[in-house]
Computed example of a mutant assay.
Amino acid sequence: MRGTTVITGADGYLGRRLAAALLDDGDDDLILAVRAASATELDGKRARLAEELGPDAVGRTRCVAADVRHDSLLTDVDPGVVTRIVHGAAVTRFNVEHDVAADVNVAGTVRLRAFAARCENLRRFALLSTLYAAGEHQGDIAEERLPSAGFVNHYEWSKWAAEDQLLGAAREMPVSVLRLPTVVADDDSGHVTQYNVFHNTLKLFHYGLLSLLPGDEKTPLSLATADFTVSAVTRLLDPAVADGVYHVCPDPAETPTLGELVDLAFTVFERDAGFRRRGLIRPVPCDRESFDDLLHAATGLRAGPLHQSLASVSPFAAQLYLPKTFRNEALRAAWPAYAAPDPYALTEATCTRLVTSKWGRRPEETS
């Protein structure tokens, strides 16, 4: 049945890919909600989305300004026509400030929930969350609503709080929470167009700016591609799929450990002549107490390279001492075509691309 899907954060890395997938997968009209402070900015984003989505978007998409920090969110949208909402707008920095995380990620979800309550034909409200909404939980993490167990940073807390706010309304509207993994590449080729803490930490290791490895080497790290993530989300938006919480991630059996990933990264690094000339050794594992002491010492060196290196890692580093396994039985049951990328091949391909392109600073073919 044809409907209208609202995507917030539609011009983001995953948002625009999801829009393309939904244009290809079904016949819904799409309302692409983007943050724009002026008509000029909105026109620019509208043009970029139209160019990226191509002819499939003609007649089926409408780009609107929507700032989740404002109660006037989506005033230009008739709630009566909306059948699905995919909420992807969020601040995703691990070092996000508490007030920003609270206003955008938590209160923004509450504001969108209030809009959804007026959508009388709503069939799905899907929140794009993160696996790390699990915070300081350890061990097996089930696909279900989680109690608070403390959090490593404000980002994790805000995504958990957004989940909790939305799942609290599950009796009033059809709600799904989709917890996403760390996306390290666009596809299985390892091509990277959006960099995050995964890539930045590898860069520190490659250039000898970080010689310690924070975390328990046995901690599993769930990695995926944008292709896999968007395909899974598209499937979970299908009306045939039940509401609920889903871990959009590879199976635990396909999840490598921190130690395995670092070893593989250095195997790739050592193929590079420039890296070999620097004579760098693999980082030394560091227990949590020692790493906390190092962070404390670095606070007095704000202008130095040590502080700069640790500043990019520290907002997430404590999570690496909290091993957890994300069960994905609900995802696999709902998605018969489930096929996760090989994490070792993906890591090797991604690291090779990072080294070849100097982390995006030069075309890969010139190496």
Rank of each mutant, 00 (worst) to 15 (best):
R332P: 06
A133S: 15
L122R: 00
F269E: 04
D287C: 13
L204S: 10
A89G: 08
L280M: 09
F205I: 05
L167H: 09
S312A: 14
A134T: 05
R327I: 14
L146C: 10
A10C: 09
E144G: 10
A33I: 04
G12D: 05
G360N: 01
V100N: 02
A298N: 07
V106P: 03
L18T: 04
M1I: 12
L264I: 12
L49D: 01
S222A: 13
T193K: 10
A126Y: 05
A20I: 15
P305C: 02
A21K: 04
A253K: 13
F198D: 03
L209K: 12
L18Y: 02
A330V: 12
V262R: 00
T257A: 06
V245S: 01
V284Y: 08
T61A: 07
L212T: 15
E51C: 08
P363H: 11
E289F: 14
G12T: 01
A37Q: 11
L128V: 11
A226C: 12
R60Y: 02
Y155S: 00
R302E: 14
A134Q: 01
T92C: 09
V6W: 09
E41M: 12
L221K: 11
P250D: 10
S176P: 00
L178N: 08
Y338R: 14
L280W: 08
V183Q: 05
T229M: 06
G274S: 10
D140P: 07
A162H: 06
P256I: 05
R276Q: 07
T299D: 11
L32N: 01
H137P: 08
A240M: 11
T352V: 15
T201N: 13
P239Q: 15
V268E: 10
V233C: 10
F205Y: 13
A349N: 14
R276L: 03
K159G: 05
A65T: 02
G108T: 03
L295E: 12
R17D: 08
L166P: 05
R111G: 06
A134D: 07
K159L: 02
R35E: 06
S189M: 09
L73M: 07
L73P: 00
V175E: 00
R278E: 11
A337W: 12
G44V: 01
G15K: 00
E254Y: 12
A90M: 04
A126C: 07
